[in-house]
Amino acid sequence: MIRVLVVEDDFMVADINRQATEQVEGFAVVKLALNGRTALDELALGKVDLVILDVYLPDMHGIELLKEARRLEYPVDFILITAAQDTRTVEQSIRYGIVDYIIKPFDFTRYYTALVEYRDRRQSLRSGDAVDQVRIDSMLVRSPAHQADSRLPKGISLLTLQKIQACLVESAGEVLSSDIAEKLTVSRVTARRYLEYLAETGGLRKEVRYQKVGRPLVYYSRL
Rank of each mutant, 00 (worst) to 15 (best):
R110C: 07
V30M: 13
A44D: 15
A130L: 14
I81S: 02
K47H: 13
Y74Q: 08
Q133T: 13
I52C: 01
A39S: 03
D132V: 14
R122V: 00
R3C: 05
G46A: 04
R71C: 08
D129S: 12
V90H: 10
L125S: 06
V6Q: 00
R70Y: 06
D86V: 00
E117V: 12
N17I: 10
G128H: 09
V48N: 01
I16A: 13
A39V: 02
R37N: 09
Y111C: 03
R121M: 06
L125F: 04
D9A: 09
V48T: 14
A84S: 12
I102T: 03
L5Y: 07
I94A: 15
F78P: 00
Y111V: 07
D129L: 14
G26M: 10
E117I: 05
R18D: 14
T113M: 13
A33Y: 03
G36Q: 10
A44C: 07
D49K: 08
I103D: 03
Q85F: 01
I102D: 00
N17P: 11
E42Y: 04
T109L: 07
I94T: 12
A28Y: 11
V48D: 01
V30Q: 12
V29A: 05
D41K: 10
A39L: 05
F11Y: 14
R70G: 09
E8C: 06
L57F: 04
Y74V: 07
I81Y: 02
R18G: 08
K104P: 10
Q85K: 06
I63D: 00
Q23S: 11
Q92A: 14
D107R: 11
I81H: 02
Q123V: 04
S93Y: 02
L125A: 13
A130Y: 06
D9G: 04
I16Y: 13
P58C: 05
E42G: 04
R37T: 11
T21N: 02
N17A: 12
K67H: 10
D54N: 04
V116Y: 00
T38Q: 12
T109E: 14
L43H: 01
E8W: 04
G36R: 05
V30F: 03
D41N: 10
E22H: 04
P75M: 12
G46M: 06
Q123G: 05
